[in-house]
Design a protein around this nucleic acid. Structure first.
Ligand SMILES: [Mn+2]
Ligand SMILES: [Mn+2]
Ligand SMILES: [Zn+2]
Ligand SMILES: [Zn+2]
Lengths: 141, 141
DNA sequence: TGTATTATTGAAAATGACTTTCATTATCAA
DNA sequence: TTGATAATGAAAGTCATTTTCAATAATACA
């Protein structure tokens, strides 16, 4: 996973720095949606001199490369999660941000019908299930 | 519509001021998701002395009263739309923010199944169709 | 109706997330 | 190894939103 990300950065002509590697380590392995400040804190455990600016810049790059996507929750809209191949929908924990992609619901045709009824040109859709994961239930939120 | 909102404010013991009435006028009549600055500009056409702070405070109240809800889009997550009675899903224009609530898709059971597979306690879900309304298509975005 | 109480208002200052600037440093192709 | 230049991070800047606070206005009630 990490190597794929690093390769994509190289393909785009970007240099591989220790900072970028450390940030990629965190984000490519996390199954939780993370805010920049969380990435900063986690990365600094192994790389204490890292600057917040570099986190912002690197995450922006990763999003542009299609490796990260923004995730919206009531608790905030500045969380980022690794992208999964193909079209997927999201099940996400409001407690800890743990995210699970799922597929298999076949509603795309119905969505198109609704859009047409209202003369909309449908571009995409967003389906997200919000709840509490097992651990967060156990820890009583 | 406006009167219902005003009554709800009164019920909560809030005073009815000219500013609040003007803001309620705009928001209760709009079928577009609006940002605070847009509400400010629209309201100031009839109430030029209004302050931005009052817009923020009033919109926060209206959200807490369940009259307004936040709408998330790529273009920003600070837009607010009047709530529609019952459970609804949203079709929204990325150009102008025009929003249409729809219902009739019956997927709640499937959602519950997916959550259970992953030991999640499902709390709610967001389904939003994103596209361009007829006018925005015509004006070529 | 007048008056007291107190919620509301808006200017101004504060906050905080994010961006920009820029001198220094590190990567990597040659 | 070296030179071109991309990347870094401290510091300053932006901008949306929040907080503070003195003045004002809405409501309850005498
Ligand atoms: Mn889908
Ligand atoms: Mn639903
Ligand atoms: Zn959780
Ligand atoms: Zn539109």
């Amino acid at each position: 996973m990490k190597n794929i990300w690093i390769d994509k950065l190289k393909e785009k002509g970007m240099r591989i720095t220790a900072q970028r590697e450390a940030i990629v380590d965190i984000l490519s392995q996390s199954d939780k949606a993370l805010e920049p400040i969380e990435v900063y804190d986690l990365t600094r455990q192994n790389h204490p001199t890292l600057g917040m600016v570099t986190v912002y810049r690197t995450m922006e790059c990763l999003e542009e490369l299609g490796l990260l996507q923004k995730v919206h929750q009531d608790s905030g809209c500045n969380k980022y999660l690794k992208v999964k191949e193909g079209h997927n929908h999201l099940l996400i924990c409001r407690g800890c941000g743990k995210a699970i992609y799922f597929e298999g619901l076949d509603m795309e045709m119905q969505f198109e019908g609704i859009a047409q009824q209202h003369n909309f040109n449908l571009e995409d859709h967003w389906l997200q299930l919000n709840g509490l994961c097992q651990q967060c239930q156990a820890s009583g939120r």
